[in-house]
Computed example of a mutant assay.
Amino acid sequence: MNATFPRTRKPRLGYDTTEVEEFLQVARRAYDGTARPDDPPLTSERIRLTAFAMQKGGYSTAHVDAALERLEDAFAAQERQVAARLHGNEAWLREARTTAQVISNRLARPQGQRFDRVNPLVLGYSTREVDRFADKLTRYFRDGWPVSLDDVRTVVFKTQRGGYRESQVDLVLDAVVDVMLAVR
Score class of each variant (00 low, 15 high):
Thr34Cys: 07
Glu79Lys: 12
Gly163Arg: 01
Thr43Glu: 01
Leu137Val: 04
Glu45Ser: 10
Val118Trp: 01
Gln168Asp: 03
Leu49Ile: 00
Arg12Ala: 14
Ser126Asn: 14
His87Gln: 10
Ala77Gly: 14
Tyr140Glu: 01
Val169Asn: 07
Ala100His: 02
Arg142His: 13
Gln111Asn: 13
Ala91Tyr: 07
Leu24Ile: 05
Val118Thr: 05
Glu79Phe: 08
Arg184Asp: 14
Phe157Gln: 11
Asp151Gln: 06
Gly58Ala: 03
Gly163Ile: 05
Val20His: 02
Val130Asp: 05
Ala3Ser: 06
Arg7Pro: 06
Ala100Asp: 08
Asp32His: 05
Ala27Glu: 07
Leu123Glu: 12
Tyr31Pro: 01
Ala27Pro: 02
Glu72Cys: 09
Arg29Phe: 10
Asp178Phe: 00
Lys136Pro: 01
Val26Asp: 02
Thr34Lys: 08
Asn2Val: 05
Glu21Gln: 07
Thr154Met: 12
Thr61Asp: 05
Arg132Pro: 00
Leu173His: 01
His63Leu: 01
Val147Ile: 15
Ala108Phe: 09
Thr43Tyr: 04
Ser148Gln: 11
Arg85Pro: 00
Gly58Val: 05
Ala76Ile: 11
Gly124Phe: 02
Val82Ala: 12
Lys136Ile: 03
Gly88Phe: 08
Ile47Cys: 11
His87Val: 10
Met180Ala: 06
Val130Glu: 06
Thr159Tyr: 07
Asp131Lys: 03
Val122Asn: 01
Gly124Gln: 04
Gln101Gly: 00
Tyr140Arg: 10
Pro37Arg: 07
Asp178Cys: 04
Ala62Glu: 13
Thr17Asp: 06
Asp178Lys: 01
Thr61Cys: 09
